Amino acid sequence: MATELNGKRVAILAADGVERVELEQPRQALDEAGARTELLSLHDGVIQARSNDLDAAGTFDVDGLVRFASASDYDALLLPGGTVNPDKLRMDPAAIGFVRDFMASGKPVASICHGPWTLLEAGVVAGRTLTSFPSIRTDLRNAGAQVVDEEVVRDGNLVTSRSPEDLAAFCTAVVELVAQADSSAAAAGGRP
């Protein structure tokens, strides 16, 4: 097991309707790199996962509620997609505040597929370059983002990807972003 992320806490923010592979694979990559991931959601218990947005794909245990979470408690944030998941998150003021605080902190944020809808609702995409699932690109452009059609896009503390087909590259980019942020903070005397 790799240890480059030992001691790092990564929040995964998701709700019912999350695309299973978009939560599961990045989480596994982070865990294997030594991070401790915690699933935050809108309610306790479990959230329902989906495959291709339509088919039931099991559940994930919720570790904590976003309304009680603080960006200062975590080193990075993962926003998986699925159509229903970010649509639920963007209607929750606590979830939007958490995402906005994370982006303002400069800490790593990673989002895939429809996940950037939550970033859009938080008002943090203007002037940023990112990618997403094709159906939400117009929304992102209308919010002031520069949208490109690439497998993975990094813009400062933000990494985005298009869809489950890009998961291998996305997982690698997420681990690298968190590891590099740690190195940058250490070089700056622990400041972000």
Rank of each mutant, 00 (worst) to 15 (best):
A49E: 04
L77N: 02
L65G: 07
D149Y: 05
G189C: 12
F68S: 15
L119N: 10
L65E: 02
G7N: 12
D53Y: 11
A56L: 15
H43N: 10
A29R: 02
R141V: 08
A173L: 03
A104N: 01
D92F: 06
V153W: 01
D55L: 13
V18A: 08
P80V: 03
S41V: 12
V152P: 12
T131N: 00
E32Q: 14
D31Q: 05
D149G: 06
T131Y: 04
L119Y: 05
V148W: 02
L23S: 07
E24H: 05
T37K: 00
R67Q: 12
D149Q: 06
E22T: 07
M103D: 00
V125H: 08
L130V: 00
L30F: 11
S132D: 12
L13D: 03
A15I: 08
I47H: 05
P192R: 14
F170H: 08
I47W: 07
D73L: 03
V178C: 14
R9F: 05
R27D: 03
H43G: 11
T138R: 12
A145C: 03
E4N: 15
A143R: 02
G7D: 10
F68Q: 15
V109N: 02
L119H: 07
E150D: 07
F170P: 11
F170L: 11
D31C: 00
A179Q: 01
A95G: 02
M103W: 00
L158C: 00
R128S: 05
F98V: 12
T131R: 06
D182Q: 14
